Simulated assay, not measured.
Amino acid sequence: MVRLPLTPAEVERGQRLGALLRRARGERSMLLTALDAGVSPETLRKIESGRVATPAFSTIAAIADVLGLSLDVVWAEINQPERAAAPARLAS
């Protein structure tokens, strides 16, 4: 199967997702976060670095759940242009 190249908008959205997850993870270890979410540490590292710009929904849902992020917050954050140092809102 041939994958089409990502558009610049998809790449940018992947970078925003990675930044959001890194901020939400804070001081928590990448290893523990990945294991708690049921993904490999390598997968989490690639998502956080923006190297995987379009991860599977179930992967993002699992990571967001572990980090206490609502999917509404994730969706809103990744679909807006980069905002200057806007902190991620955690779900209550």
Rank of each mutant, 00 (worst) to 15 (best):
residue 1 M to S: 14
residue 1 M to G: 15
residue 3 R to N: 13
residue 3 R to V: 07
residue 4 L to P: 03
residue 6 L to C: 09
residue 7 T to H: 08
residue 8 P to F: 01
residue 9 A to G: 09
residue 10 E to W: 03
residue 10 E to D: 13
residue 10 E to H: 03
residue 10 E to S: 09
residue 12 E to M: 11
residue 12 E to P: 00
residue 14 G to F: 00
residue 14 G to N: 03
residue 14 G to M: 01
residue 14 G to W: 00
residue 15 Q to S: 14
residue 16 R to P: 01
residue 17 L to T: 03
residue 17 L to F: 02
residue 17 L to N: 04
residue 17 L to V: 05
residue 17 L to K: 01
residue 18 G to A: 05
residue 19 A to V: 04
residue 19 A to E: 07
residue 20 L to H: 03
residue 20 L to T: 04
residue 21 L to V: 08
residue 22 R to K: 15
residue 22 R to W: 05
residue 23 R to N: 12
residue 25 R to S: 00
residue 25 R to Y: 04
residue 26 G to W: 05
residue 27 E to H: 11
residue 27 E to C: 05
residue 29 S to C: 09
residue 29 S to D: 12
residue 31 L to Q: 15
residue 31 L to I: 13
residue 31 L to N: 10
residue 32 L to I: 01
residue 34 A to H: 01
residue 35 L to F: 09
residue 35 L to S: 02
residue 36 D to F: 01
residue 37 A to M: 09
residue 37 A to L: 06
residue 38 G to S: 03
residue 38 G to F: 03
residue 38 G to K: 07
residue 39 V to I: 12
residue 39 V to D: 00
residue 40 S to H: 08
residue 40 S to A: 12
residue 41 P to R: 08
residue 41 P to T: 04
residue 42 E to D: 11
residue 43 T to P: 00
residue 44 L to V: 10
residue 45 R to L: 05
residue 45 R to W: 02
residue 46 K to V: 02
residue 47 I to N: 00
residue 48 E to W: 05
residue 48 E to G: 07
residue 49 S to T: 05
residue 50 G to H: 05
residue 51 R to H: 11
residue 51 R to D: 07
residue 51 R to F: 05
residue 52 V to P: 00
residue 52 V to N: 08
residue 54 T to G: 02
residue 55 P to A: 10
residue 56 A to V: 10
residue 57 F to G: 12
residue 57 F to K: 10
residue 58 S to M: 13
residue 58 S to E: 13
residue 59 T to F: 02
residue 60 I to Q: 02
residue 61 A to W: 08
residue 62 A to T: 10
residue 62 A to K: 06
residue 64 A to S: 11
residue 64 A to R: 03
residue 64 A to E: 07
residue 66 V to F: 04
residue 66 V to Q: 01
residue 67 L to C: 07
residue 67 L to M: 11
residue 68 G to I: 07
residue 68 G to H: 09
residue 70 S to D: 15
residue 70 S to C: 09
residue 71 L to R: 04
residue 71 L to F: 14
residue 72 D to P: 04
residue 73 V to Q: 11
residue 74 V to T: 05
residue 75 W to N: 08
residue 75 W to T: 09
residue 75 W to Q: 08
residue 75 W to F: 14
residue 75 W to S: 11
residue 75 W to P: 00
residue 78 I to H: 09
residue 78 I to R: 08
residue 79 N to F: 08
residue 81 P to C: 07
residue 81 P to F: 10
residue 81 P to G: 15
residue 82 E to Q: 14
residue 83 R to C: 02
residue 85 A to I: 15
residue 85 A to W: 13
residue 86 A to L: 14
residue 87 P to S: 06
residue 88 A to W: 04
residue 88 A to M: 12
residue 88 A to T: 15
residue 89 R to D: 13
residue 89 R to V: 15
residue 90 L to S: 13
residue 92 S to H: 14
residue 92 S to T: 13
residue 92 S to K: 06
